[in-house]
Design a protein around this nucleic acid. Structure first.
Lengths: 341, 341
DNA sequence: CAGAATATGACTAACGTAAGTCAGAAATGC
DNA sequence: GCATTTCTGACTTACGTTAGTCATATTCTG
């Protein structure tokens, strides 16, 4: 009636509990014929390991470390909040968080080197792209620690997985939306970036321009405005651009500094027909802007899902379980005023 | 170092394990002063019950039953697939599924009456709105079974929760999208419904017209086309409408029968500028239509999340845990070609 | 076919909690 | 202050699995 246990499997396979355990946990000293008999019995009974009991007996704690950039970036703070508030949502896993100065390769490399491999089973890191970081990351792997990159990837490094969204797709999604929003109204589109030095911003821009050029050629893409994720700079520069180009039909803000966009719109708005606006990251401010109609859509990645995926991937890596190739792929969410959570 | 256990709590509170157990599980026979001491000790130590060990010891199985409509509705089949494929993803929970003829009040009521209250702790039901169903549901509650409605709600019945999306919001979201897609091109919008008798279709239409009338008055909403969720009917009727109204700018398909929309577009397309299309439910067909450019957006609800939420809410109800009021609220997802999962 | 190497079995303690029994202690009523 | 009721403690078994020890059985090697 209830789920079969290893006792049932042992009885059916005609072997002892010890042998079942040896098979189940990949220990040595079992002939392949016996392994087969056990496997058959398991299949016949539909046995499934009781993970709760297993972890309880194993009393293992996967010790995971998250390394996040410090600073006021609301998405990073969202990740951190998720980690600290729900640190105990993951049974048999202890999670610690360390913050390092943002965009500081040396500091990040140092933090990676400082990881105590004897007290840490896995690390999730929001990476910056530089040689020292790559080297520190490789060394961490050599010391036997599982490593995944989070939010920002470091392809062709020795990280084992990436957890985050596909930023090219995110840019394409924004263009699909904005292009449709502006259809029939030829004009200019402004891209508000943080810094083109950041890989993910460059990727978003790439995807955005791919789609816009191919499918909405009536829109002219202005040179991107680098706001350094600072709302004051964004507000000032965007205001100037809007004044200089009276027929801007759309704005795509692909980094932070979204509050600056709202401010520039508030100042220069009123007169002209409001341009359509698509921004990244749902925050208190972008939510408000959606509600009052100054933004049209927000492209979002959910910090909770991101953290959950990172934990799950790291757990799999640490415990030697296979990881599905797209386990780290986070979905790109689209919010309008009417489907806000 | 590691998490405190009831042994630690007992030591700190200066009481025995038995007393801890009595407090923890709400058994009688503990003076309030003692309860307070135990509570204090727990808070001091930051004790959290090890759910895995507790369930293991309790060896309880929550027996949940899902009642779904039969038929070819791909969303319902998605729910069923999710349930059967991942029935063992929920530890300490056994899940069974029963299908009943779709839109058949009497059959549904009968199925509810046939539930064996001694072998079932909770029921999730895709409800239809009728007196017999309400009565059967109330009786099920009286027999001590927890009940939630799934996908279709039955407000003011004795169901304890609803798990699903807010259909008015879904309709509003569709209008926000479609209105923006069609901006600057005044014309007609066609609503393709299944049947206005189904509450959720009526709700979607309501939300859609609310937003469209208020914010996009340049679009004229044609009388809804009732396709009965049958792709042949939808194809034929929509084709006729498109022929009769050469300047249809947008189509909103709020039920099933989405394949019929694609067929009608393929036939009548080519010549006229293609209308913008927003439909519900991501299926193999709607995905294909997004990719080949005949649909612009798909409003979706994720069966996996829906099932997970239903299981979680039922578990809470059965075990007498509190349920957050919006635990059953499922997010309304928006997919374009470029953010398909 | 002996001796060595390898497989397997039997048994045990432990993980953190639940749930029971029973005896004894403390509080209460009168 | 005695009987009665109400609390509390000590102890036990169980849940399904891990992980160990040690003895014995089986297979391989030469």
């Amino acid at each position: 009636m209830s789920r079969p246990t290893i006792h049932d499997v042992a009885r059916v396979a005609g072997v002892s509990l010890s042998t079942i355990d040896r098979v189940l946990n990949g220990r040595s000293g079992v002939r392949s014929v016996t392994q087969q008999r056990v496997a058959d019995a398991m299949r016949e009974l539909g046995y499934e390991r009781n993970a709760a009991a297993a972890n309880l007996a194993r009393r293992r704690q996967d010790r995971l470390l998250f390394i996040l950039p410090a600073g006021t970036n609301s998405f990073m703070r969202g990740l951190e909040r998720e980690l600290t508030q729900r640190a105990d949502a993951w049974q048999f896993t202890s999670i610690s968080v360390r913050t390092v100065p943002a965009f500081d390769d040396a500091a990040l490399a140092e933090a990676l080197q400082a990881v105590d491999a004897d007290k840490t089973d896995g690390v999730a890191v929001v990476a910056t792209d530089s040689a020292v970081v790559r080297a520190a990351l490789a060394e961490l792997r050599n010391r036997g620690v599982a490593v995944v990159t989070l939010v920002f990837d470091l392809p062709s490094s020795r990280r084992q997985h990436f957890v985050g969204i596909d930023n090219v797709q995110a840019g394409r999604t924004a263009a699909s939306l904005l292009g449709r929003f502006c259809r029939g109204r030829p004009g200019q589109i402004v891209i508000v970036a943080g810094s083109m030095l950041v890989r993910d911003h460059a990727e978003r821009r790439l995807g955005f321009e791919q789609v816009l050029r191919a499918e909405f050629p009536e829109q002219q893409v202005l040179p991107p405005l680098e706001g350094l994720d600072d709302q004051d700079i964004v507000a000032a520069e965007l205001e100037a651009v809007l004044r200089a180009n009276p027929d801007v039909t759309g704005i795509y803000s692909l980094g932070a500094g979204t509050r600056g966009v709202a401010r520039a719109l508030a100042v220069s708005g009123a007169a002209l027909p409001r341009p359509s606006v698509v921004v990244h990251e749902l925050t208190a401010h972008s939510r408000q802007a959606l509600l009052d109609g100054s933004f049209d859509a927000v492209i979002h990645q959910d910090p909770a899902r991101e953290i959950a995926a990172a934990v799950s991937v790291l757990q799999s890596l640490v415990q030697g379980r296979p990881v599905e190739p797209d386990a780290g792929r986070i979905s790109i969410e689209v919010f309008l005023r009417d489907n806000l959570p």
